[in-house]
């Protein structure tokens, strides 16, 4: 029995990969783990429920979305630009790592415990902050908006409080995300 493959080329964290021969129907999470050794996307349920597996796709149209890699085939990402948690921090010329504001906030707020679901939360929160930068919202809507952005992400350790508070903190500290009252 031979497994049918198709060529796959894509950009992950600004690095080009491919063309690689990848089996049809291989889920993206397996591609990330087995082909390019990026293990930040985690298998929590394998059914698209817990969202520990999400990666970010940046569309040419300018929108970005979180995609569940455990239920989406790798070939869907052909030609696409993908961000995983491994690509969110920056390393400067001196080799110093600079965490993104969301990552830094999660550290300062002690937002995670075992850390398994954390890459998913980081990706979701990152997208949320990016969306707000384009479409600021009134302060009174902030808590509801955070709930909506994160509600699909399951965490078993933390009870969610410190994740949510960290995201609120990032939004309040980043200028331009909250609509000033008229």
């Amino acid at each position: 029995m031979s497994i049918k493959t198709q060529p796959l080329s894509l950009t992950i964290n600004n690095q080009h990969y491919g063309p690689l021969e990848v089996p049809e129907g291989l889920m993206m999470i397996d591609f990330l783990h087995e082909y390019v050794a990026l293990t930040g996307c985690r298998l929590g349920c394998g059914q698209g429920i817990c969202h520990a597996c999400v990666a970010i796709v940046d569309h040419d149209s300018g929108t970005s979305e979180e995609v569940r890699t455990c239920i989406t085939g790798a070939h869907f990402f052909n030609g696409k630009k993908v961000r995983t948690v491994e690509g969110l921090a920056k390393t400067d010329d001196n080799g110093e790592v600079q965490l993104s504001p969301v990552q830094q906030a999660f550290l300062e707020h002690y937002s995670f415990q075992c850390g398994y679901c954390t890459p998913g939360f980081v990706n979701a929160a990152t997208l949320f902050v990016e969306r707000l930068a384009k479409h600021p919202i009134p302060l009174v809507d902030l808590e509801g908006a955070i709930e909506k952005a994160l509600e699909n992400h399951i965490c078993r350790c933390t009870g969610y409080v410190r994740y949510y508070q960290a995201v609120r903190d990032v939004v309040l500290k980043t200028p331009g995300l909250i609509k000033e009252p008229v």
């Binding site: 198709q6 049809e24 129907g25 889920m27 059914q47 698209g48 989406t72 790798a74 070939h75």
Partner: peptide, 23 residues
């Protein structure tokens, strides 16, 4: 078929058998 594999098979299984009690 390819669209099915990439978008649907994760829950509905590659052969369309679904997953009992899940999909």
């Amino acid at each position: 078929r390819i669209t099915y594999l990439d978008q649907c098979s994760g829950c509905h299984a590659a052969d369309g058998a679904g997953k009992p009690h899940v999909a």
